[in-house]
Simulated assay, not measured.
Amino acid sequence: MLWNWKRRNWPNFSFSSDHLKSYEREFLRKAGELSGSLKHISEDEHESLKVDLMSNEAYKTSEIEGEILDRASLQSSIKRHFGLRSDHRKIPPAEHGIAEMMVDLYRTYDKPLTHDQLFKWHSMITIGRRDLLAIGKYRTHEDPMQIVSGRVDLPQVHFEAPPSSQVPKEMQAFVNWYNQTKSIEPLTKAGIAHLYFESIHPFEDGNGRIGRAISEKVLSQSLGRPTLIAISSLIEQDKKAYYSKLQKNSSDLEITDWLEYFCELVLKAQEYTQRMIDFLIEKSKYYRMYDHELNERQKKVIDRVFRAGVNGFKGGLSADNYMSVSGTSASTATRDLQKLVDLGALVRKGERKGTRYYLTIDHPVGNAHGLIP
């Protein structure tokens, strides 16, 4: 197989700018909407949004690589990095490392990309690892760096990166390209940066997580602020398509197909963030309308439903859920739920054991009541 880095014109990727113009315009339009929406939430809500998005991205970017982390530890670690109040739990190394990288990306988005920053990110996400030869530096092993699947005795090679001896030269060219390229539109540059970096695959492990962080850095620099969009969350929903597109574009330098996929991914990520902001706005409206009408049990349950996020309780809030969260009896739960329905704070759907309750918020997710049943 003639991989892209073996091509005579490497790393001069080619693509159709005309195919990407509408994506670039939409990206800037959505970015403006997001910025405007943020003005309608409080400082505390903004901090909450930041922590939720960053911890979810840390979780998802790790999950893409098959590493399942503890969400609560990620949130706690990110809060501590920002000086916010958190619990006192002990944070495992993996959760601490990826959280630290996400916070560093947030704080240094406007700085030039450097080898030292990449080394620092790699050290963060591999903290505590004992199985790697090179931590905080580019790979040095003599074995081919390959992406494989299938049986050990009959592996299928999906991609082979440049040999380790070539990596320093390739990465110097990449860093120069990143910092010196000003004429390419943001979505296009972010998509190229991700594919370019993954094609070099400079580290023993962690290339996917760092490559996705580089894409977010490009987009943040183009907007002059951290993007706070859920790129990894969208990728994780269809990892098969993500890896398929990467593989398909690993043997040629014409990458319009990859860039169209990447642009659509980022636009969907922006929509996800917009829904989260809208949800926070509706949450504030909801509490202003109903908070003074609720007893302590009802407040506790409503708070728990809101903490479930834009998608709410899976399957909706049931009477059993209410009893479990509030610690009350079946008869009291029935009265409390009926009062919430009478107030207009919840809407009831279904009958008997299939009865479920949903927040009455105006939110463009799932249905008119905001939480997906």
Rank of each mutant, 00 (worst) to 15 (best):
L280W: 03
V341S: 08
F174I: 00
A72E: 15
Q117N: 03
K240T: 13
F15Y: 15
T108G: 02
M171H: 04
R25D: 00
H122T: 08
L195V: 06
K111V: 00
G128T: 10
G206Y: 05
Y272A: 10
V148P: 07
D52P: 01
E43W: 00
E33R: 11
D342E: 15
F27V: 00
M1N: 07
G208W: 11
D336A: 13
E271N: 12
F313H: 07
W121R: 09
Q166F: 09
H88F: 15
I281M: 15
K79S: 07
M289V: 07
P162T: 11
Q298M: 05
Y286M: 03
A94H: 08
L113A: 05
Q338G: 08
T355V: 12
T360R: 10
A31M: 03
E57C: 05
K240M: 07
I127Q: 09
L84K: 09
K217L: 12
Q117G: 01
R288D: 13
L38E: 14
Y242I: 04
S244D: 14
T114V: 00
F15Q: 07
A230S: 15
N207T: 08
A319T: 15
D342V: 02
L223N: 01
I214D: 04
Y106F: 15
N12E: 14
H201M: 07
P112A: 03
A94W: 00
L359A: 12
G136P: 04
T126C: 14
R275I: 10
S164G: 02
S149R: 12
E254F: 14
K30D: 01
K79I: 02
M101V: 04
M289H: 14
P163K: 10
Q180D: 11
T114H: 04
K349D: 06
S62Y: 09
K239E: 13
A345G: 11
T328G: 12
V347Q: 14
S77L: 05
W121N: 10
I231W: 00
Q270D: 06
S86D: 09
E198M: 12
Q298I: 02
F313V: 14
E170A: 10
G206C: 04
K349G: 04
A31I: 00
V51C: 02
K39Y: 08
G316Q: 11
K90I: 14
G66M: 09
L359N: 11
D336T: 08
F306R: 06
T273A: 07
I200N: 04
M323P: 07
R85I: 09
R130Q: 13
L343G: 08
I200G: 08
Y322P: 10
R89P: 03
D153N: 02
R29W: 03
S244T: 14
A330Q: 15
G191P: 07
I255F: 11
D131I: 05
H40R: 13
L253N: 12
K39E: 13
E254T: 05
F313N: 04
I125E: 06
I255H: 10
N179S: 06
L219Q: 04
D131M: 06
F159A: 13
K120P: 01
P93M: 09
H194F: 11
K120I: 00
R275W: 09
P202Q: 10
D52M: 08
D87T: 11
K314F: 01
V175E: 05
L53F: 03
K50D: 02
I64L: 12
